[in-house]
Amino acid sequence: MSEQQYYNFMAAICDQISDPFTPIEIATTNPIESFSPPIFAAYSSRNGDIFIKRLAKYKKLIGPLSFKIDEDSKQLSITLTPSNQQYSLPSFLVLSEFAFLVGLLRKTTKEAISPLKITMTSPVNDEQVINFFGCKIESGKRNTITFAKKDLQVNFISYN
Rank of each mutant, 00 (worst) to 15 (best):
A41Y: 07
P64E: 01
I50Y: 05
I26D: 08
F67Q: 00
T22F: 05
F92Y: 14
I50F: 03
T29H: 13
S2D: 13
S44P: 02
Q128M: 05
M10L: 12
S88E: 14
F98L: 07
D151M: 02
L80C: 05
A41N: 13
N131W: 02
F51G: 04
K107Y: 08
I32D: 12
K141W: 00
K74R: 07
F67C: 00
S18E: 09
N125L: 01
F67S: 04
A41V: 09
R46G: 07
K117T: 04
R106L: 10
D15Q: 15
F133D: 07
I69L: 02
Y58R: 04
L116G: 06
P37M: 12
A112F: 08
P115T: 04
Q153T: 13
V154T: 08
Q16F: 03
T81L: 15
K74H: 06
I52M: 04
R46W: 12
T29E: 13
L65Q: 02
Y6M: 06
Y159T: 11
F67K: 00
T22L: 14
E71K: 01
A12I: 07
F35V: 14
L76D: 02
F40A: 14
K150G: 09
T22S: 14
R142Q: 15
T144P: 06
K117L: 08
Q153P: 05
S91R: 12
I52K: 02
P31Y: 08
T79D: 04
E3I: 00
L89T: 09
T81H: 02
K53Q: 15
